[in-house]
Amino acid sequence: MRKFFDPNLAGANLKDRLLACLGALLGIGLTSVISAAFVHPHGAFLLIAAPMGAAAVLVFAVPASPLAQPWPVIGGNTVSALVGVAVRMLVPAPELAAPLAVGAAILVMSLTRSLHPPAGAVALTAIVSGPAVLDAGFAFVLIPIGVNSVILTLCGVLFHRFSGHSYPHRVAGIAPAPINAALQAEDLDKALADLGETLDVSREDLDLLFGRVEYHARHRRKGSTGGFPTGRAA
């Protein structure tokens, strides 16, 4: 039965998952409480947007993900809200507006380097949430989306000062010279191009990871416990 409780993310452990639970509890709790001061007159449901639950999973469970960084959380949610409201105003048929809003939100987030998966739900929320969002208009972008996103991000920054993880994520320990001079940064770029997939990890973290793989492989071959640099220069 133990395998059912093993994390399904590389590098994760039970401690990190428990910390993620605590972080999400505190983050969503504080976001709800503080946002209460900004409740929109068009409806109490606008106190906190449902996509913030998905954003909390990223911020607190995978804080190293490029998709969980402050700009994607705040910028991605905000521009997607703008797109969603604009599409709703221009396209009255929800069955057409819904796919247009999500597709356009992905495009705008990609162009602004703010790709954030929960923001797709923000754009969709603007379409399917009933007349209250339409009545609120672009105020929906600020309240609750903008306010929620800023508070949740600040909670993430504060929480991860004590969690043992950096947030905003910073790649540390890169060595000034490569461990294996035969491997160059351009080799990593070509390998990524070969895969033809978008990976939820930064190029810098991959470079550091491969450096650690080299480090442990050398120790295994030499039977040594001495120190090696912790990464390769990008």
Rank of each mutant, 00 (worst) to 15 (best):
S166Q: 11
N77P: 00
P7N: 04
G29W: 10
A139Q: 02
S166C: 06
L124G: 01
L22W: 05
N8R: 15
V150I: 11
G226Q: 12
V150F: 02
E204M: 11
V171R: 12
L188T: 05
L107R: 06
A185L: 08
A217R: 10
A104Q: 05
P144N: 11
K15V: 12
G156N: 08
E186L: 06
Q184M: 09
H219C: 13
G75Y: 05
N180I: 10
A93K: 07
A172H: 12
T78K: 00
R88F: 03
P117L: 13
P178R: 12
R161F: 02
P92D: 14
R170G: 03
H216W: 14
L96N: 06
I48L: 13
A217H: 10
V83W: 04
G156E: 11
F140I: 00
T198I: 15
K3W: 15
V108M: 02
Y215W: 12
V133W: 01
L46P: 00
S35E: 06
M89V: 01
R221W: 11
V91M: 10
L134S: 04
G231C: 06
A54S: 12
T198K: 15
L19A: 08
A93P: 00
G156C: 02
A93D: 14
A172K: 13
L134I: 02
L67C: 02
R212F: 07
P66W: 09
N148K: 07
A37P: 00
P131Q: 12
L14R: 12
P118D: 05
A20V: 05
A37I: 08
L19C: 06
L111E: 05
V59K: 09
K222C: 13
Y167V: 03
L124Q: 03
D207Q: 13
L209Y: 13
G23H: 09
G103A: 11
L158N: 04
L22G: 15
H216G: 03
